[in-house]
Design a protein around this nucleic acid. Structure first.
Length: 476
DNA sequence: ATGTCC
């Protein structure tokens, strides 16, 4: 990206001033180096989002942003329904409510290393992974609707996990106002055999070691200490979310002219929040959020089953569960006044600051855990939400390393088997059904996650708490 | 991300 197009506010905050048809400015939160490395397409997309009806404040770009469908991945935009605001399927993304869940284990590195290979095999055997992977669960029509309304709460009621898990999940495990009746039969059909599966692409399940602590007080409140072993699950709403995204994108493209919405890019297809199509999408999208929450809840129980056999001393309570592809109705202060806004976060994590009433009591004083999935080789982070992010980007932060190279380019550059062997030499065991997938996900196909979280911290979006490095990775 | 092109 051409830095001369930007007005620098601070080391990690850059403005694209409102110009032309932009209703608000765009803000990019990243270091000079990260901004310079961003594709010019991110600039264009952030500008295009700023043109949409009813947008409030600014079109925000997180430090891990890259070129996406319509909206950048790493984009945050809030809309006011009373001001003609819109909801956009492309502003949420195809993998609705894709997110990360972190489990404690109560174990230390030596416990894992004693059984590292067996653990990798057992997790790989128990966790269905890869394109089109299916699980052991079959849902009939009534059960599907109950899952789409109930989310992780439904899964716990069915025996996957415990009530204590739910308070550590956004929305307390259940996204309200989901409307399964607006989820097509085709979307439900695609999901019928996919509950409790990891999926493919950048989805993974990792056993990780806490290798650095940056804020000892918050880390302790989160129950994280140097050398602790945690487990991260990164996955989403599988075929159901993808089908919903595909169908509503098409409907929104077709309907936009009728709503008088002129799109700078047809990929920004959207509908007024106060329209039948907008409400249908919100109802279906919330159902997909519940699908993802239920999926991560079921996977949690599968993981606990594996540990119960192999490492029976382990306890695996949930640290937290965040989604990073959503549109949620939230209250935010704008110019000192609280307003109800529909906040799109696409490849961006909600990051409530200290004191937020939706946080569980044990975490409230520290701010929300923000779980950042890195790449297979470079590690992950736990950050904490800040007060500052409320006024910066509607309490949002980054979500991962962010791709630096296309899948196509990565395939030309790396061989999957070689990537697995090189990581094994560094003590990281990868198990995947797809060596092609591993090549696409090679660590160097991603931005430097350290630089991304440093920028998020410096910008004030979230505070660095702990760094995690993988020992075992099940890759979709 | 994705029954990686109905």
């Amino acid at each position: 990206m051409d830095l001369t197009l930007l007005k620098q506010h601070s080391a990690c905050a850059w403005e694209i001033p409102a110009q032309g048809k932009m209703r608000v400015p765009a803000m990019i939160y990243a270091s000079r180096e990260l901004v310079r490395a961003m594709d010019h397409k991110v600039y264009e997309q952030a500008v295009n989002v700023a043109m949409l009806p009813g947008i409030v404040g600014a079109s925000h770009v997180m430090p891990d942003a890259h070129w996406g469908y319509g909206f950048p991945i790493g984009g945050v935009a809030a809309f006011d329904a009373d001001a003609g605001g819109v909801v956009s399927a492309g502003g949420v993304g195809f993998d609705v409510s894709c997110g990360v869940r972190c489990l404690h284990t109560g174990l230390r590195r030596e416990h894992i290393m004693a059984v590292q290979r067996e653990l990798a095999e057992a997790l790989f055997e128990r966790i269905p992974a890869g394109v089109g992977s299916t699980g052991a669960i079959r849902l009939n029509s009534a059960q599907m609707d109950a899952m789409l309304s109930g989310g992780a709460k439904w899964a716990v009621e069915r025996g996957w996990g415990s009530n204590a898990d739910l308070e550590r999940v956004e929305e307390h495990g259940q996204m309200l106002h989901a409307k399964p009746k607006f989820v097509s039969e085709q979307a439900k059909k695609r999901q019928r055999e996919e509950m409790g599966t990891l999926g493919s692409g950048n989805h993974y399940l990792e056993v990780q070691e806490v290798t650095a602590v940056f804020d000892a007080a918050i880390a302790s409140a989160y129950g994280l200490h140097q050398g602790d072993i945690v487990l991260m699950i990164h996955c989403g709403s599988r075929g159901l979310g993808h089908q919903i995204g595909t169908e509503f994108l098409r409907k929104m493209v077709e309907a936009a002219p009728g709503y008088g919405i002129i799109l700078p890019d047809r990929e920004l297809a959207c509908a007024p929040i106060r329209s039948d199509l907008g409400q249908e999408y919100l109802g279906a999208m919330r159902a997909a959020i519940n699908c993802a929450l239920a999926n991560r809840q079921i996977l949690t129980q599968l993981v606990r089953d594996v540990f119960a056999k192999l490492l029976p001393s382990a306890q695996l309570p949930v640290l937290y569960d965040v989604s990073h592809n959503t549109c949620k109705l939230e209250t935010h202060k704008v110019d000192g006044q609280p307003r109800e806004l529909y906040v799109h976060r696409k490849g961006a994590t909600r990051a409530w600051g200290p004191g937020h009433p939706e946080l569980p009591q044990a975490l409230r004083a520290s701010g929300q855990p923000v779980l950042i999935g890195g790449s297979m080789g470079t590690g992950s982070y736990v950050l904490a939400g800040t007060k500052a992010s409320e006024s910066l980007a509607f309490s949002s932060a980054c979500h991962g390393a962010g791709r630096a190279m296309s899948r196509h380019q990565a395939l030309k550059t790396w061989n999957g088997r070689t990537v697995v062997d090189e990581l094994a030499q560094r003590g990281i065991l990868i198990r995947s059904p797809s060596m092609r997938g591993v090549a696409e996900e090679a660590p160097d196909a991603y931005k430097d996650v350290n630089a991304v979280v440093d920028a998020a911290d410096a910008a004030g979006l979230a505070r660095k708490v702990a760094r995690l490095e993988p020992l075992v990775c099940i890759k979709g």
